[in-house]
Design a protein around this nucleic acid. Structure first.
Length: 625
RNA sequence: GGCAGGGUAGCUCAGUUGGUUAGAGCACCGGCUUCAUAAGCCGGGUGUCGGCGGUUCAAAUCCGCCCCCUGCUACCA
């Protein structure tokens, strides 16, 4: 028996729970349930990140205290996880007292070790973006509300750990998964690693954890959020508990927060002399941009609503079966229904039905005697007995989707076995043998289902009960994974419609696609735009950017230079002499070192970009209204 | 542009110490069956294994060049 500690990120409490949150959390739940079943000592942590400016602003807007705000908003996650049958061991919130104490302890520790220093940063600050800009960013980009700002903050000496971290990643090949993500992190670390700004003055951000060594500041996101992984399990006071669980076996994360978890967090742990998590696993995203989906239904599918319609377990199954962890996957209602019908209804549900009905009708649902093992019985038993190892091998690599396919291979094997032995015929000639066959089929089904329990806890629990396992028996009890655990003479149950087929209506050609319009504006707003027709007199590649063209355009009274991001679609020579429309009163900006005095108007779809051209020739400089 | 990964059946993908007729699931077609949820079982693919060239007795698998896609990164008025 070993030990398994799995975490999800803590989700930002202001966010609306969506399929990405749900996927990570269900994956963690499935892994945790598997490990519990296999007898491992298991801990599953999830929670919410509840500090920061957005919470502060949202609370102000609602006119409530930030704590009240997060107390209300956290329920959206907790209720969703309840609905999805998530069985975490702890739901941590960064506003809870013990977490805040641990964050302060950690900050004090690093301060005492001289790993945090105070420094004044002077430079460009974008008010709109709420962030400082590097000189390079300022020169090359277009930033609104930029001003020179000087601000004193506290910095963590992250740079001191660059070499150590690179070596650690090389020495621990499983540390960052999948492999290609590891390479990305190493690529990131080839550039010089800077120090990490970890504070904000209270004048700008008050909703946070106060620095223990300076009451004028709160800590900014990293030390607050990442520390949850250790504050939840006893660091530093409950040493025995902490040592039981840390280091974590796997931090599950989305690919968007790889750097914080694979760079910031490890260096923080190194600074505190703590071991690093064994694996950081970055999964992909669910792609929803499938136009086919929205067309066939005329609106946007909200995946989590499918749980209401077709059951929580069906959604959990789909999420786990359809995504190869690490890769992106695409979500469509067609794929969901396809999976449901062919796997859950046909292979599994129908098999349950044929076995339990044959037993009910002919043996009063009392499990018959297996008798002597024939060669075909032995084949079946062998398939089933190898299942646990195959499933476990996949799970050790977090390949839940492959684990599931192994189970369904066995279910198909059982269907074949029934076809070969045809117990419905044997009943007329050799009832004992028919009973033996049904014993074997039932036990094979039970053992297969056991391996699906972590994915579909509700449905499979009901099924296992029907298959002769006491309702009170806890998953993972001795013998569950062994052939013959349920003895002949046991009374089985009946179950109807475990996974009823989803009848697919003939999908009519949908015409309406929902428009995603920006908020309404007034006519005055419109008239602020000065749109003109210009003639392109010269076009060339931007010297310092692949996707940009540098255009000289004739506005009648004057000529201008305009930069346009259309190099992927047009060669410079295609454009010379053409008339296009531009916004002529847009504030000029420097794009990759070249001035741009206006913006070309162009239509864009998922195939190409098409600059807008007048139907008839008009003079350069003509107004567009 | 730099770095990384990929392009195999209609779809999603498996398949490298180079070696017999290149596989799975789904979809589709035909047959069998009718215990069962219009389910089950059996059978059905001449796929240029992205392209061209090379190494070899032998290449999806190794090498070179090229095309396309994805991710990270730079940039995207």
């Amino acid at each position: 028996m070993s030990r398994f500690y799995v975490t999800t990120p803590i989700y930002y409490v202001n966010d609306e729970p969506h399929i990405g949150h749900a996927y990570t959390t269900v994956l963690a739940d499935v892994l945790a349930r598997f490990h519990r079943a296999l007898g491992d000592k298991t801990y599953f942590l999830t929670g919410t990140d509840e500090h920061g400016q957005k919470v502060q602003q949202a609370a102000e807007k609602r006119g409530v205290d930030p704590q009240q705000h997060v107390d209300e908003y956290v329920l959206r996650f907790q209720e969703k996880w309840d609905a999805l049958d998530i069985r975490y061991d702890q739901f941590i919130r960064t506003t809870q007292a013990n977490h805040k104490a641990v964050v302060r302890h950690l900050l004090q520790l690093l301060w005492d070790k001289g790993l945090i220093y105070k420094d004044t940063y002077e430079g460009w600050y974008s008010v709109a973006e709420e962030r400082f800009l590097t000189d390079k960013e300022y020169e090359e980009g277009d930033w609104r509300d930029v001003k020179q700002l000087s601000e004193t903050n506290y910095w963590f000496k992250m740079s001191a750990y660059q070499e150590k971290l690179i070596n650690y990643i090389h020495d621990n090949p499983d540390f960052i998964q999948p492999e290609f993500r590891k390479n990305e992190v190493l690529g990131f670390l080839r550039q010089e690693l800077g120090d990490l700004c970890i504070s904000r003055p209270k004048s700008r951000l008050s909703w946070g954890i106060e620095l223990p060594f300076d009451s004028e500041y709160v800590t900014y996101v990293w030390f607050d959020a990442l520390t949850n992984y250790i504050s939840a399990i006893g660091y530093p006071d409950r040493d025995e508990e902490f040592k039981t669980w840390w280091p974590a076996d796997v931090h599950l994360i989305g690919k968007d927060i790889l750097t914080t978890h694979a760079v910031y967090w490890p260096t923080m742990l190194m600074a505190a002399d703590l071991p690093l998590p064994k694996t950081i696993f970055a999964h992909g995203w669910w792609l929803m941009g499938d136009t086919k989906m929205s067309k066939s239904l005329g609106n946007v599918i909200r995946p989590l609503d499918l749980a209401n319609e077709y059951g929580v377990d069906a959604l959990r199954y789909f999420l786990m079966r359809e995504m190869t962890p690490g890769q992106d996957a695409s979500f469509s209602i067609e794929a969901f229904i396809g999976r449901y019908n062919s796997d859950l209804a046909n292979d599994l549900g129908n098999l349950v039905n044929r076995i339990t009905k044959l037993l009910g009708r002919n043996f009063d649902s009392i499990l018959p005697d297996p008798g002597e093992t024939s060669p075909e019985d032995a084949d079946l038993i062998q398939h089933v007995n190898g299942l646990q190892e195959r499933v476990r091998d996949e799970l050790d690599q977090l390949k839940v989707n492959y684990a599931i396919t192994h189970v369904f291979d066995v279910l198909r094997e059982i269907n074949r076995y029934l076809e070969e032995t045809a117990p419905w015929k044997l009943l007329k000639t050799d009832k004992d043998r028919a009973g033996a066959v049904l014993y074997n089929a039932a036990e094979a089904l039970r053992l297969s289902a056991v391996h699906l329990y972590p994915v579909m806890p509700d449905k499979i629990a009901r099924l296992l009960e029907v298959m002769g396992t006491s309702a009170k028996a806890r998953f993972g009890e001795p013998g569950w994974f062994e052939w013959g655990h349920v003895k002949s003479g046991t009374t089985l149950g009946q179950i109807d419609g475990l996974f009823p087929r989803i009848e697919v209506k003939e999908a009519p050609e949908e015409t309406s696609v929902k428009l995603d319009l920006k908020p309404e504006i007034s006519f005055d707003d419109f008239t602020k735009l000065d749109i003109r027709i210009v003639k392109i007199i010269k076009a060339e590649k931007h010297p310092n950017a692949d996707k940009l063209l540098k255009l000289q355009v004739d506005l009648g009274a004057e000529q201008r230079q305009v930069i346009a991001g259309i190099a992927d679609f047009y060669a410079p020579e295609d454009l010379v002499g053409k008339s296009v429309s531009i916004i002529a009163n847009l504030k000029p900006a420097k794009i990759r070192g070249e001035i741009s005095q206006g913006m070309i108007l162009a239509a864009e779809d998922d195939v190409t970009v098409a600059p807008l051209t007048p139907l008839k020739d008009v003079k350069p400089g003509s107004k567009v209204r």
